[in-house]
């Protein structure tokens, strides 16, 4: 199972799967409730948790191992796909995450990401500019650009906004 960020306005909610899987979608069993993609490393052996987390995010993002990640990495993410918009909630231990040239090449998606950490700080380096983003301040980035984030333990909500779905505010988001 992997992170799949394909988002489409023409087929806003992938149907046909009442279970949680990488395509996410609408719970057709009830027809009324949204069901997120969920991934947690909690049931895995401590030494396998980080690799599983890393694998789930490939090839979109690259999580960089540290001394501590080998001793356990209890992380969890829920991702609701809402057409050209997706919403995520995640709880992740301290870690560095990058969108490298290789990631950009292998999965050249470019939605905007707006992150809002309820808890935790991240230090980000994008296009040669370093910024410290404290908790409770929204941060806008594009997956179309490379970056390196170094994070403390974070609990965060995020929006992923497909360019095609938000064309009318594209210049504003690029300028922000």
């Amino acid at each position: 199972m992997r992170l799949n960020l394909s988002m489409s306005m023409t087929n806003p909610v992938p149907c046909g799967a009442a279970r949680l899987d990488a395509t996410g979608g609408f719970d057709i069993a009830s027809g009324r409730t949204m069901t997120p993609d969920t991934f947690t490393t909690q049931p895995l052996r401590s030494q396998d948790q980080f690799e599983a987390w890393r694998e789930w995010h490939q090839p979109v993002l690259d999580f960089l191992p540290t001394q501590s990640t080998r001793y356990g990495f209890h992380a969890e993410v829920h991702l609701w796909k809402l057409g050209g918009l997706a919403m995520g909630w995640a709880s992740v231990p301290p870690v560095s995450v990058a969108r490298t040239r290789s990631n950009l090449k292998r999965d050249p998606i470019d939605p905007w990401v707006i992150s809002y950490c309820v808890r935790g700080t991240h230090f980000t380096n994008m296009a040669g500019t370093a910024v410290e983003v404290p908790a409770k301040v929204p941060f806008l980035a594009s997956l179309g650009q490379g970056f390196l984030h170094e994070r403390t333990h974070i609990d965060r909500v995020s929006f992923l906004m497909a360019r095609d779905a938000f064309r009318d505010i594209a210049a504003l988001l690029d300028a922000a």
Partner: peptide
């Protein structure tokens, strides 16, 4: 509580909130 029918309006609302933030 959000339903499929709400999604287009939800996207517009999110777009408006985001556009107001910068």
């Amino acid at each position: 509580d959000v339903t499929e029918a709400d999604l287009p309006r939800l996207a517009r609302a999110v777009g408006a909130m985001v556009a107001a933030a910068p």
